[in-house]
């Protein structure tokens, strides 16, 4: 099936009748392109991927967890009720959501806040027809033209989008759009080649962790300024901190994004910090992206979106460590 491009806004408006719709929207007054809730009028920003990842839809920067009253001993759950359809999400970002699912929903603990938002989320992916120079998703096991994990997959055919449902949620959207869709057998043009490629095979995690004490971490981290930019614009960084805000006897617990690049992230009670300098912090972040997560969940956490390469104030590049590992085996 296909959807003519000039009927896209109509289709989105239909979606908006039943749920919130999030779109990649252009920079508003000097900001950066990001997924935001659609007001029903704005044109989506589809030229390239957004600077900010869509993870906020599932894992907001700050969210309330529960309220409490110390006098009465009352506790009240704060569970999100979100029904959101997101359009224009790229295959790398769809993959990132699969990774967040691993982290928040598997291995014996289900994060109820994430679960609630995840259940209410419908992903309508758009295959890439142009790669940015920082893109390297195909090296990380993502096909830039196809996102099997999305509910509905769309590809640019020129004057129309191909529409293919992958899941029940996707079928429901296709049904909703029935009147707008037309038969079309056009095959999506071949996905573009990524900006560059790196070698990240199955042995990378073991080869990396074997070099935990390698001096290369010193040289890799020297230029790092120790900010949290890479973690916050990363579609798969999911660390958070929990805090409380109090007014008299009442209060709310909240959680908010945190970054392993900050010194207080790993500081323990009593002041000891097992990751005292940026070398240890950067190593941890890289290893989490490229090794630890794969060893635990069988999927590489880095999806190759290239946002951190684009935005790092010191122009650090996570793929450099992969290049350095080329031809190095786990034993030597």
């Amino acid at each position: 099936m296909e959807l003519k491009k000039d009927r896209l806004l109509e289709a989105l408006a239909l979606l908006r009748e039943g749920s919130d719709v999030a779109l990649p929207l252009p920079a508003d007054d000097g900001g950066e392109p990001a997924f935001r809730l659609w007001d029903g009028v704005q044109e989506p920003f589809l030229g390239s991927n957004t600077s900010l990842p869509p993870k906020e839809l599932l894992f907001p920067r700050s969210e309330g967890m529960y309220g409490y009253n110390l006098k009465t001993g009352e506790l009240s759950d704060i569970l999100p009720e979100a029904r959101t359809a997101v359009f224009g999400i790229r295959p790398c970002d769809v993959k990132s959501i699969e990774n967040l699912d691993h982290a928040f929903l598997e291995k014996g603990y289900v994060d109820s806040y994430y679960r609630a938002r995840r259940d209410g989320l419908t992903t309508i992916a758009l295959g890439c027809s142009e790669a940015a120079r920082t893109c390297f998703c195909d090296s990380m096991g993502v096909a830039p033209g196809d996102a099997p994990g999305a509910d509905l997959m769309m590809n640019d055919l020129g004057d129309a989008y191909s529409v293919k449902a992958n899941t029940e949620k996707g079928e429901a959207v296709a049904k909703l759009w029935e009147g707008l869709l037309s038969k079309g057998g056009a095959k999506a043009p071949a996905a573009p080649a990524c900006g560059f490629s790196v070698k990240a095979d199955d042995s990378l995690p073991d080869r990396l962790t074997a070099r935990f004490d390698d001096p290369m971490w010193d040289s890799l981290s020297k230029a790092c300024i120790g900010c949290g930019c890479c973690s916050f614009i990363c579609p798969t960084c999911y660390c958070f901190d929990i805090g409380r805000e109090n007014r008299g006897a009442c209060g709310t617990a909240f959680r908010c994004w945190d970054s392993c690049m900050f010194s207080d992230y790993s500081r323990m009670a009593g002041g000891h910090n097992p990751r005292p300098s940026k070398k240890e912090r950067l190593r941890n972040r890289y290893l989490h992206k490229l090794a630890y997560f794969s060893q635990r969940y069988g999927a590489t956490l880095c999806v190759g979106c290239g946002r951190c390469i684009d935005k790092c104030p010191a122009n650090l590049d996570i793929t450099r460590v992969m290049d350095m590992m080329e031809g190095v085996d786990a034993n030597g």
Binding site: R36, S62, T84, T252
Partner: peptide, 17 residues
């Protein structure tokens, strides 16, 4: 002034805070 979260409103986050 900080916005206090109250009840179910606190759960509404999502994109574009």
């Amino acid at each position: 002034r900080e916005a206090l979260r109250e009840g179910a409103d606190a759960g509404k986050g999502g994109a574009g805070i």
